[in-house]
């Protein structure tokens, strides 16, 4: 019933706890202090008592873990569960959410020091990764068929992911474009807006005219355009807005235009 691993660690735990109690009493512990972790009475020398008791607790936890897993022996597990065989574990599929979670954690760490807004961005990334990771973990074990699991996962998450991703992408593009428009000169802003419209319409026209065009090509074009706009937006945001013309109003109600942005 009890595995050798359990017996070893349980015995070790009992020995360490006993040693902690004896050590506690022999170094000045009083009443029942060493027996009840100092709840009533002293435990004697703190360092030695805590070390021995801590190790005893850890050994006890390992013993419990080992008996739970039946020393990792599928035969013993199967016997314990009263079945002929234990179902093998389904391998975890590749996932990019752990990397997103890591970037989220790093963003939070930097945001903790730099600015609360950065921290919130990291927190949002971590929250998204946690939700996606949880759903993936659930879907991986939903049925015995990985293809069905993937379809099930997509059915649950796609109605949320696609609109959310679209909204985020649109928001980022609008934000980046607005930074460029605010940074560029008056004429430059017009040219940029025109170019952006041409690119969007061009890609749309291309796709409409040749619906069998490679998806990779379309995705590549959109990626290049998107990265260019975002990079331009970041540079523009760092550089700041251009100086805008101000309208000074005189006491008689007449307005003077000052043209600062040439």
């Amino acid at each position: 019933m009890f595995t050798p691993g359990f017996k070893f660690f349980f015995g070790l735990a009992m020995g360490l706890v006993t040693a902690a109690v004896v050590y506690g009493y022999s170094t000045g512990g009083d009443h029942v202090g060493p027996l009840v972790w100092g709840w009533k009475g002293g435990i004697g020398d703190h360092v030695g008592y805590v070390t021995l008791m801590g190790l005893g607790v850890v050994a006890g936890l390992i013993a419990i873990a080992l008996v739970m897993y039946r020393d990792a022996d599928p035969a013993a597990q199967a016997h314990y569960a009263g079945v002929d065989s234990i179902a093998p574990t389904t391998p975890a599929a590749a996932s990019h959410w752990p990397v997103v979670a890591a970037f989220g954690a790093a963003t939070m760490a930097v945001g903790l020091v730099v600015h609360s807004a950065v921290f919130v961005v990291g927190l949002v990334l971590c929250a998204i990764a946690a939700i996606e990771w949880t759903i993936d973990a659930w879907a991986d074990r939903a049925t015995g068929d990985p293809v069905a699991n993937k379809a099930l996962r997509d059915r649950v998450m796609a109605p949320i992911e696609i609109p959310a991703a679209g909204a985020i992408a649109a928001g980022v593009m609008v934000l980046a474009s607005s930074r460029i428009l605010l940074n560029a000169s008056a004429n430059g802003a017009v040219i940029f807006a025109g170019l952006l419209a041409v690119v969007i319409l061009g890609i749309g026209t291309l796709y409409a005219a040749k619906p069998k065009l490679s998806k990779n090509l379309i995705a590549g074009l959109m990626l290049v355009a998107g990265v260019a706009v975002i990079a331009g937006g970041i540079v523009a945001a760092v550089d700041g807005e251009r100086e805008f013309e101000r309208h000074e109003v005189h006491e008689d109600g007449a307005a003077d235009d000052t043209h600062a942005d040439e």
């Binding site: 022996d73 035969a75 013993a76 016997h79 391998p91 590749a94």
Partner: peptide
């Protein structure tokens, strides 16, 4: 010391599930 009095005939399923493909 034997922990299982009678060993199940087939303790591990014969066909392990498909592993992730080489990437």
């Amino acid at each position: 010391m034997t922990m299982t009095e009678s060993q199940p005939a087939s303790a591990v399923a014969d066909n392990p599930p498909a592993a992730p493909s080489a990437a």
